[in-house]
Each structure stands twice: as structure tokens, then as C-alpha cells.
């Protein structure tokens, strides 16, 4: 069954319409950038300095107060939305796999952004950056994006978000929104990578996904050979009720840790089980109006 079928595209269109009708002004391109420049919306004044463009002098103010003040305008520009998509092998876990789910979510968000005349780019990573879909604009590029996503495969060993963020921030590109779609199972911790993004004035938004069996593992009691799909390592262990209880506690703590981190730095955060359909997740994100500023 293809990942992006006609039904998927219909859902994308529907989500795009919903975003325009209901959430107009609160999503992506409708919001203003923090940069001042040439626009039509007045921002404030500043004193004239030699070399300034005379066209922006406020002559009315000069007539009243005999002061040369320069009108400043908020610069209108396209929002750059970067998607960091995790394609590590751990993402291939679950039914449906987290990777499929992540690709659908990224495709949907990208479509909405493109429909709002924003620019998007997709960076695929595992232990390092694996592939890139270059910055692009216009709804017409969606098919190319979908084809790009469809051709991706889960690969690579342990997720290393720090290395990925390092590579990402060193690129010559404009700041913007960075949507990180991952399970965040980084053995070294996801926080370091996110910190790098924040410090470089990107605005990270975390979309963390997990499978229901990760939250509540079945058939694990007893003597088992635990096989890490990401690293390929196997380990013979005896899982007791107590161990299982500990696991669930650690998993919950991990989830809470993600939420706390995002809250602490006012980052957008969406945690979801892959049981939820991608369109429902997008609608949920839309309802969290402040989550995408």
C-alpha cells in the first residue's frame, strides 16, 4: 500500500482548507517575522542617520516637531520551515511504523506551509544527516516532496541528534521554525541537539512519536533475547513483573522529560502515539493554537 495515496492527498487538501478558514493568522506565513525592513506595516521611528533613504522620512512629524525621524516598517518575508525527520531504525518499529507516521505528519505540515506560501526544507537524519530536500516554495512542489519522502528508508544506527543539529546549524540558511519529527531515542539525550538549535535562534517544535507497544510492551515476561532493532545488538535477559514496572516508569519519565524540556524553553511540543491518525494529529496541533506561532 503506497504511503501517500489519493486518500492521503485529499486529507492534505482538507487540512489545508481547515488551516486557512479556522486558524487564519495563527499559522506559519500569517505571522510576522521579528526582522524590520521593507514592508507596509508600520513598526516604529528612529532618528535619521546620514545615508538613510529619504523616502522613509516622516515628513509630517518633521513639519510638526522639526525632527528628522525615519519610519520603520516590519519586514514581511516568507517563513522558513525546516523539518528534521528521524529515519533511524528505531523509527521502523511498530505497526504502523513510526517512520511512516512521521513521514505522513511531515508531508502534511509541509503541504500546509507550502499552501501558505512558506518555504520548507526537509532534512532526514539518523546518527547523522542522511538526506535533504532543499528549500522550496509553492504548492506545486508537494509532489516532489512526497516522492522524496516515499523513497526514504529507515537506516543508520543510534540516533545522534547533537551531531545532526551541529550539521544543520552550520548551514548557510535563514533562521526559522524547525519541526523535529522523531522518537527522540538518542542514547546521548535529545536535549543537547535541541539546545544547539535554540541557541542558534531556530525555533524548534518537537513532534515526538511512540508505538503503543513501546509504552506497554507485551509478551516480554520471562526469559527473552531482547533485540535492539536500532543497533542490532541482542541481549538475553529475564524480565520480571518488577522489571516491566520499572520500564513503564522509565518510559513515562522520558515522556515527561520531553514535555518538561519543551515547557522550560517554551518550545512547541506534540507527543503522540502512532495509534492516532496523522490527520487527527494535525488537527490536534492546530487546536493547540499557540504551539505553532
Amino acid at each position: 500500500m503506497p504511503l501517500f495515496d489519493s486518500d492521503f492527498l485529499k486529507k492534505l487538501e482538507y487540512l489545508s482548507l481547515i488551516s486557512k478558514r479556522v486558524f487564519r493568522g495563527s499559522l506559519l506565513a500569517q505571522r510576522r517575522t521579528m526582522q524590520l525592513g521593507t514592508g507596509i506595516e508600520f513598526a516604529d521611528h528612529r532618528e535619521y542617520a546620514p545615508g538613510d533613504d529619504f523616502r522613509y522620512l516622516d515628513w509630517n512629524l518633521f513639519a510638526r516637531h522639526n525632527e528628522l525621524l525615519l519610519k520603520r516598517f516590519q519586514e514581511e518575508e516568507d517563513l522558513h520551515v525546516y523539518f528534521l525527520l528521524d529515519c533511524s531504525r528505531s523509527m521502523a518499529f511498530g505497526e504502523p511504523s513510526k517512520f511512516d507516521f512521521a513521514r505522513q505528519v511531515v508531508a502534511a505540515l509541509a503541504y500546509i506551509a507550502l499552501a501558505d506560501l512558506d518555504r520548507i526544507a526537509v532534512t532526514v537524519f539518523s546518527n547523522d544527516i542522511v538526506a535533504d530536500f532543499p528549500l522550496t516554495r509553492g504548492k506545486g512542489r508537494i509532489l516532489a516532496l512526497l516522492k522524496f519522502l516515499e523513497n526514504l528508508e529507515a537506516q543508520g544506527e543510534d540516533t545522534n541528534l547533537e551531531r545532526v543539529a551541529t550539521g544543520f546549524i552550520h548551514r548557510d540558511q535563514r533562521r526559522g521554525l524547525v519541526v523535529v519529527a522523531s522518537d527522540l531515542y538518542d542514547p546521548n539525550g535529545f536535549e543537547r541537539g535541541m539546545d544547539l538549535l535554540r541557541h542558534r535562534r531556530y525555533e524548534p517544535h518537537v513532534v515526538q512519536m511512540y508505538d503503543k507497544y513501546e509504552k506497554d510492551p507485551p509478551d516480554l515476561l520471562g526469559d527473552v533475547e531482547m533485540w535492539d532493532v536500532e543497533s542490532g545488538n541482542a541481549r538475553k535477559v529475564t524480565v520480571t513483573e518488577k522489571n516491566l514496572k520499572q520500564y513503564k516508569q522509565l518510559f513515562d519519565e522520558f515522556q515527561t522529560g520531553i514535555q518538561n524540556y519543551c515547557n522550560r524553553y517554551q518550545l512547541g511540543c506534540t507527543r503522540t502515539s502512532t495509534e492516532l491518525k496523522f490527520d487527527e494529529l494535525i488537527l490536534k496541533m492546530m487546536r493547540q493554537a499557540g504551539s505553532i506561532r
Partner: peptide, 17 residues
């Protein structure tokens, strides 16, 4: 032969064991 159980990550299990 033990039952082989795939897990997406051993981060948590490693902490336990």
C-alpha cells in the same frame, strides 16, 4: 532457545538491567 523480542530501543532496559 530463548524467545527473540525486538525492541525499538534498549535505552530504558539498559538502565534497568
Amino acid at each position: 532457545r530463548l524467545k527473540r523480542v525486538p525492541v525499538s530501543t534498549v535505552i530504558f532496559w539498559r538502565q534497568i538491567f
